[in-house]
């Protein structure tokens, strides 16, 4: 899988990035470095002002351009407050015109995958922050996406919840092996999760480093306290501060 583009000077400049199929890639950088903009371009929500985005995919849109099935997780859970967890998860299928019984089955299955079996009829306001985020992830997974785009999804959660969601996300990813592009401003989170960390810098937003995280999966709490993890975090952290200083 390959894509390359560069946009106007303001948000992103000369970004050239290859994303491998089945990869877990983190975009790491300070706020204002355009990592969310890059993610929104990947999602097709905004157009790059120059350059191209090339997704080899079996699926095509109305104009015949290859367009993979995408899942998107926002920084906030972004659930419809008037709908139950099940209806929220079933939304993408409903928009695709999937029949009711099928979409309810698939939504219930997706909820079970994120550990929320039994919460089908709960309204978002009755769920905790972590559970809402799980519903949001289930909604992104319900269409069996080829690419999962996540925009600082766990930034607003407490640390304990964030660790658990990190582990659950890794488990789901290892089960299905879709591609993940994960935006974060946390060095520790990016190292823990990803196979590759792309460090970005601001003004103008650009890619300054690409670091491979050569630790094997599955990664668990033992990895989080290992010397290997600490060393990797130090390397990435150093890369980030160098990148910002440049």
């Amino acid at each position: 899988m390959e894509k390359r583009f560069g946009t106007g000077t303001l948000a992103l400049r000369g970004v050239d990035l290859d994303i491998g199929r089945g990869d877990f890639l983190s975009l790491l950088g300070p706020s204002g470095c355009g990592k969310s903009t890059l993610l929104r371009i990947l999602a097709g929500l905004i157009e790059p002002s120059a350059g191209i985005l090339d997704w080899p995919s079996a699926e095509h849109d109305a104009r015949g351009t290859p367009r993979p099935r995408l899942g998107f997780v926002f920084q906030e859970p972004t659930l419809m407050p008037w709908a139950t967890a099940l209806s929220n998860v079933a939304l993408p299928l409903r928009l695709e015109g999937v029949a009711r019984s099928e979409r309810e089955d698939r939504a219930a299955e997706a909820l079970a995958r994120v550990g929320l079996a039994g919460f089908e009829n709960a309204y978002p306001r009755a769920l905790s922050g972590g559970m809402k985020m799980r519903v949001s992830i289930a909604r992104a997974l319900v269409t069996s996406p080829e690419i999962l785009l996540m925009d600082e999804p766990f930034a607003a959660l407490d640390e304990i919840t964030r660790f658990r969601l990190n582990n659950d996300l890794l488990a789901i990813w290892q089960g299905a092996r879709f591609t993940v592009v994960f935006v974060t401003h946390s060095v520790f989170e990016s190292v823990y999760l990803s196979r590759r960390v792309v460090v970005m810098a601001a003004r103008p937003g650009r890619v300054v480093r690409e670091l491979a995280i050569d630790a094997s999966y599955p990664r668990d709490e033992a990895f989080r306290t290992s010397a290997e993890y600490a060393a990797l975090c130090r390397t990435v952290s150093l890369g980030l501060s160098e990148a910002i200083a440049e």
């Binding site: 929104r40 999602a43 097709g44 929500l45 849109d61 995408l70 998107f72 926002f74 906030e76 972004t78 419809m80 008037w82 709908a83 939304l91 993408p92 409903r94 928009l95 695709e96 269409t143």
Partner: peptide, 29 residues
């Protein structure tokens, strides 16, 4: 209606009618 939800509807290529019935009208209720 919530801007992120609108983006989500665009991402899944919802039609205007779908956006109206599933997003805007419930938001306006």
């Amino acid at each position: 209606a919530d801007h992120n939800l609108r983006d989500l509807f665009r991402l899944y290529r919802a039609s205007r009618l779908q956006e109206l019935f599933f997003l805007r009208l419930p938001s306006a209720m």
